[in-house]
Structure formats: structure tokens, C-alpha cells
């Protein structure tokens, strides 16, 4: 933890400079995309899709999360922010049990998805991951065709009929705002797409399993501003039908896309609340220091 401290300062510097470039664009896009972040009252009224209580998480002996309690409201965007190594990605990967894949990890506490504990012994992890989709930081399309990438999830789920698959693929690509760009080359390799297109393809691939929840681990951090903007617009549209949890390094992005924001620091959830409130009127000084860029 302490070893990564110096690099954390550097990364904030980068973010600050990025913010300057992005903010001008923000004003343009705010014309066509009215900011409709849900108020704290609306959030409180929303049904809780995921409910995490007293979550502790360990890598071997090292504790990465401390007593995290957080409600994720349905059909809202929840942003997880915080400096590198604060545990926000670890937290995200707990929600679809992706951390199971790493040897020597341990977890205490409860995570309820639709009131069901996803860590009870008889949970079908495969089934869980169909309901909780994930988009990764670096786009990771399979070295297959565009069609096969999107059809992968449904195929794994046992759908064989070509016509059904084709329908799912088209539907998912449309939802991911990629259909018009790729409809004529579905049989080309996905690796020929640009970085931004690949990431939207990964989103389409995730949507194809029709999950209720979408986890996104810094989905735009490797993309140029134009692609980032497209992904953000997309997140905003997807909010209507999906519950989204997004990890982001970029506070402006959190402010732009999310309804609720949770601030993590050193493995602890410092503060969570309606994005509008958290960014304008944070309760804790640590949160204020972070969002005003006083530390990273």
C-alpha cells in the first residue's frame, strides 16, 4: 500500500490535466444530454438491487476491504471513486465473484443480489455471472469474429438457433451503439476494430446475456476523449434498463454519468450518496480533499 503512494500522486496529476481537456467538451455534450442524475430522494425510493453489508476482503493475509456497507439502487448508475489501490476494483469484482478466480482470497460479510446471498455455498456462480455482466478496463474481445464475440454468451447459455442468435447479436450491438458501424462486417475479426469500438463490442457482448446488472471497471480509461464520450452517453442510456456499477479514476466522469457515488479510500468506504450531493456538499473532509484534488 505505502509503496504505491508516490505513483498515486503522479496519476492524479495526469487526471487533472485530462480534466481540463474534457471539461470543454462536457459543456458541448451537456446541450444534447440533459443531466438527469437522480436526486437523493429518488435514490432512497429506488429498490435496492445489490445490498452489501459489512464486507471484509482479504488477499492472503492482506486485508483489501474493511467493513464496506453499500446499497446499489436498481436502474441507477453507481460510481466507485478513489485513488489507486483503494479497493474499488476489488469491491466491484466481489459483486460477480470474479475474485474467486484468484487463489488465496477470502471474504467476510454479505452481498445480496435481489435479496439472495451470492456467497452462500449453493450459489451457481455461472448463473450469477449471467445476471451480473462485467466490462473490463482494457477491451478484451476474443480473437473471433464480431458476430461470434457477441454470440458467445448466448451460445454458452445453450442457445443454438442461428436466427435467435442473429437477433440477439443485432439487438445487443444496437444497444451498444455499434450496429451501424459493424453491420456489414459481422464476420470480420473483432481485433480489426478500433479501441473504442472494441470496448463497445465488449459492452454489447455483455448485454447479449441480458444481465440485470452491469459492472464496469474503468471502461473508458484506455480510450480517447471521443470514444470516452460515446461510452458515457451509452452508460446514460443503459441506465434506463440496467443497474450499473462503474469504477472510475476520473471524478468528472463519475459526476457526469452517475446517480450515486461511493468514495473508497484505503479499503474503506468513506462516503456514499447521491452524486449531486456528494460532489457539491460532501460530509467528510477526506472526500472533499479528494474531489477537490487536494490528494490522490
Amino acid at each position: 500500500m505505502s509503496a504505491s503512494e508516490p505513483s498515486m500522486t503522479i496519476s492524479t496529476d495526469n487526471e487533472q490535466s485530462k480534466v481540463v481537456g474534457v471539461s470543454t467538451r462536457l459543456h458541448e455534450s451537456s446541450d444534447r444530454r440533459p443531466k438527469l442524475a437522480r436526486s437523493s430522494d429518488e435514490l432512497a425510493a429506488a429498490r435496492s438491487k445489490i445490498s452489501v453489508s459489512n464486507l471484509d476482503f482479504f488477499y492472503e493475509e492482506q486485508q483489501a476491504l474493511f467493513d464496506v456497507t453499500l446499497d446499489v439502487p436498481e436502474k441507477c448508475v453507481t460510481a466507485l471513486i478513489g485513488p489507486s489501490g483503494c479497493g474499488k476494483s476489488t469491491f466491484l469484482r466481489c459483486l460477480n465473484r470474479m475474485n474467486d478466480m484468484i487463489d488465496g482470497t477470502r471474504l467476510k460479510g454479505k452481498i445480496l443480489l435481489d435479496q439472495e446471498d451470492i456467497y452462500r455455498p449453493r450459489t451457481d456462480v455461472v448463473e450469477l455471472r449471467k445476471r451480473v455482466g462485467m466490462v473490463f478496463q482494457k477491451s478484451n474481445p476474443f480473437p473471433k469474429t464480431i458476430f461470434e464475440n457477441v454470440a458467445y454468451g448466448p451460445k454458452v447459455a445453450g442457445i443454438r438457433k442461428r436466427s435467435v442468435l442473429r437477433e440477439i447479436v443485432e439487438h445487443s450491438l444496437r444497444k451498444a451503439a455499434l450496429w451501424d458501424e459493424v453491420k456489414d462486417r459481422l464476420n470480420q475479426s473483432a481485433l480489426q476494430l478500433s479501441g473504442g469500438q472494441q470496448q463497445r463490442l465488449c459492452i454489447a457482448r455483455t448485454l447479449a446475456t441480458s444481465p440485470g446488472v452491469l459492472l464496469m471497471d474503468e471502461p473508458a480509461s484506455a480510450l480517447d476523449p471521443a470514444s470516452t464520450s460515446r461510452i458515457e452517453d451509452l452508460i446514460f442510456e443503459l441506465r434506463e434498463s440496467y443497474t450499473i456499477v462503474i469504477v472510475t479514476h476520473n471524478m468528472q466522469q463519475a459526476a457526469r454519468v452517475s446517480d450515486q457515488t461511493a468514495f473508497f479510500f484505503q479499503g474503506k468506504l468513506i462516503e456514499a450518496g447521491a452524486t449531486n450531493t456528494l460532489f457539491t456538499n460532501p460530509e467528510k473532509t477526506q472526500t472533499e480533499d479528494y474531489i477537490t484534488g487536494r490528494f490522490g
Binding site: 470474479m98 455471472r129 449471467k130 480473437p143 454458452v156 447479449a208
Partner: peptide
Amino acid sequence: VPRSLREASYALGATKLD
């Protein structure tokens, strides 16, 4: 084979055999 490909696959509800 990159770990990211395996993770992508698992995240789509694939079994180990898949």
C-alpha cells in the same frame, strides 16, 4: 493466452470447460 480473455469468458457465465 491472456488472462483477460479467460476473465471475459467467465464474466459471460461460461463454465471452466467452456
